[in-house]
Write a protein that binds this DNA or RNA. Structure first.
Lengths: 216, 216
DNA sequence: GTCTATACTGGGATAGAC
DNA sequence: GTCTATCCCAGTATAGAC
């Protein structure tokens, strides 16, 4: 995804389009559809505004193109079949780990999704990979309960709550950095720690424990 | 907060200002500072755009006023002293429960905070109540570990992860509704279920269990 | 395919009547 | 204190040269 094509000074339609899409993804993530400025996108891309309208007829069309590309590239989960082979707790850990990795490496998509949610009534979300993730997690949780690995819980609600834990750290970065004034939240070390703590919390949160009190 | 003063047709400066603030909070929550339209705020309020500039000199000043009011009203946590009296697990449950209640009853504030994070680099977040919530939770987690109630964990990271679980359901509502096509996510019943499931996940996630494997 | 220059519009802000 | 009318800039979109 994030490969810039600025170096070629010769005319290259393909490269220009990719370059515009990259800059647009960034801008839309930051500001949402309405507040995004085509001028900023053009400036970051290195081409002029006119080019944006040449390739993508309007800001809306460009937005749609960004979403389309993002959905096709985001969240490469382990295949359903592979997950079914694993014990439920290992399957869940795999999914959560994949999710955390995706979110850490490209925060633009979750940010765009959020803007979608509160501005555009989640119109595009149906197409997105996140619903798949939720369904997958929910199914694993159901299986884990029936196999006795997990405590009694409501699978869809718990899947949503897990997803919340996974995305919040990166989504709220600019706010949360005040909570860690002396650390770099995006450093390799911190991201790894976040991954580890999130997984620990989630796994402990769903697993059945011999003498633990059941929640119902 | 959400009390409208439209019914008085006589001139009432106080009521007009409150009315503007209410509408503005809504609009800023939906669109963020930049994309928010003063025209929309005025329309929703029932007064004209000019009034907004009469009372608040600019859109920015209005935004600041909305934030100031929100911070002073949001998240009424139990007093520090009361929490210290309780066993750590009960204290944590109290805080999480309070947080879930605040978020469910007014989603505007978390939404504004989110926009702050990704648009304005979290400038205002330092003032907000959320950092207090995080510190409070973190302290409780530390105490719980030292008293042997909680498993070994990183307190700040875990506090952030818990907060994520608490806010995500309401923040992502418009997206997540596609995941529950047959339910009303804002119904009393669903909100209660979310509260219950979130608390169950969090408490199970942090508590020490006799035979559970420690995460470190 | 890429640029410069410009037409057009939405919306922030203000002047002035009532 | 509240309204109407208007100014004017920022920003979308396009025409036309190269």
């Amino acid at each position: 995804m994030v490969y810039s094509a600025k170096e070629s000074k010769t005319r290259d339609a393909e490269a220009t389009q990719v370059s515009i899409l990259d800059a647009a993804e960034e801008e839309f993530a930051r500001h949402g559809l309405k507040a995004a400025r085509t001028e900023t996108i053009a400036a970051r891309t290195g081409v002029t505004k006119a080019m944006i309208y040449y390739y993508f007829q309007s800001k809306e069309k460009l937005y749609q193109a960004v979403l389309d590309r993002a959905f096709s590239e985001y969240v490469h989960l382990p295949k359903q079949l592979d997950l079914d082979q694993l014990p439920s707790d290992e399957a869940l850990e795999q999914v959560v780990r994949g999710l955390l990795a995706s979110v850490s490496c490209n925060q633009n998509i979750p940010q765009i999704m959020f803007h979608e949610a509160i501005q555009n009534h989640g119109e595009y979300y149906k197409q997105a990979g996140f619903l798949t993730v939720l369904s997958t997690m929910s199914a694993i949780l159901e299986r884990g309960m029936s196999e006795g690995d997990f405590r009694p819980l409501d699978a869809p609600h718990t899947a949503v709550n897990i997803l919340g834990t996974c995305v919040f750290y990166c989504l709220g970065y600019e706010n949360l950095k005040h909570f860690w004034p002396d650390k770099q939240m995006h450093s390799q070390k911190m991201l790894e720690q976040h991954t580890q703590e999130a997984i620990a919390l989630v796994m402990a949160g769903v697993q059945r424990h011999e003498n633990g009190e059941m929640s119902k």
